[in-house]
């Protein structure tokens, strides 16, 4: 039960408490760019969630089996060549380039998929769909996973934790961007002072939204207590 409790905690952490957009401030460009209408924002959020989950899966797999120091694949190759070798092969230098590579490929894949099955969504997302490639929220998720896998030793994350971080991180992004789009839709009806129109008021809203999410800080310790005790 402790284990399930920690997974739930991780999910709530990724989605709400340490929200990617509103706590770490990554993925701001689609957050501001595609949050004009709720339905488009929802589509963008879902696309990002999808990509981030795939990227989390691939990056965990590659980091665990190939890239981390003394990874199963590399050490197996080394031992096949020279059974007596004590050499530790460390391919962590490849981390960034492999992550970027994986993200770019999965974005391409999603783009083809959306174009085939949801043409209206494809049209409304426009240039922001290929731009998921450079969405830092996704690279951030990959790096977060790397931090907990590469060279950690016994406490390293398993695949389910990586997937939960990716998926609920994406859900957190979805929540943030849909909230933002809802507020901005209402804002069209408001009399915004002239100097603040456009980008100005958007930044202020984003700031206030981030402050609201700061209210979750500290919830995790209390939640951990409840979950662990409940698990007995």
């Amino acid at each position: 039960m402790d284990y399930v409790g920690s997974l739930i905690l991780l999910a709530i952490n990724a989605a709400l408490i340490n929200n990617f957009v509103l706590h770490y401030f990554v993925g701001i460009c689609p957050f501001v760019g595609v949050s004009r209408r709720v339905d488009v924002a929802l589509g963008m959020g879902l696309a990002v969630t999808f990509v981030i989950t795939i990227a989390a899966f691939l990056s965990w797999t590659l980091t665990w089996f190939v890239l981390q120091p003394n990874a199963p694949l590399t050490s197996w190759i080394v031992h096949t060549i020279n059974p007596n070798s004590e050499m530790v092969v460390d391919l962590s230098i490849l981390n960034y380039i492999v992550y970027i590579f994986v993200i770019a490929s999965s974005v391409q894949f999603v783009e083809m998929f959306v174009r085939k099955f949801h043409p209206p969504l494809y049209k409304s997302l426009g240039v922001y769909l290929p731009l998921i490639t450079t969405n830092c929220a996704i690279l951030f998720a990959c790096l977060e996973i790397m931090k907990h896998v590469s060279g950690v030793g016994a406490g390293a994350w398993t695949l389910d934790k990586a997937l939960i971080l990716g998926f609920f991180g994406g859900i957190g992004f979805l929540i943030a961007i849909v909230l933002m789009a809802g507020i901005r839709e209402e804002l069209d009806l408001c009399d915004v002072p002239a100097p603040l129109k456009g980008a100005g008021i958007t930044m202020i809203i984003a700031g206030i939204l981030a402050m609201a999410f700061m209210g979750f800080t500290g919830v995790d310790s209390g939640l951990a207590g409840i979950l662990m005790r409940g698990g007995g």
Partner: peptide
Amino acid sequence: TITIILAAAIM
């Protein structure tokens, strides 16, 4: 050398 070869091969 083996690290470099492995890196290239994996990419």
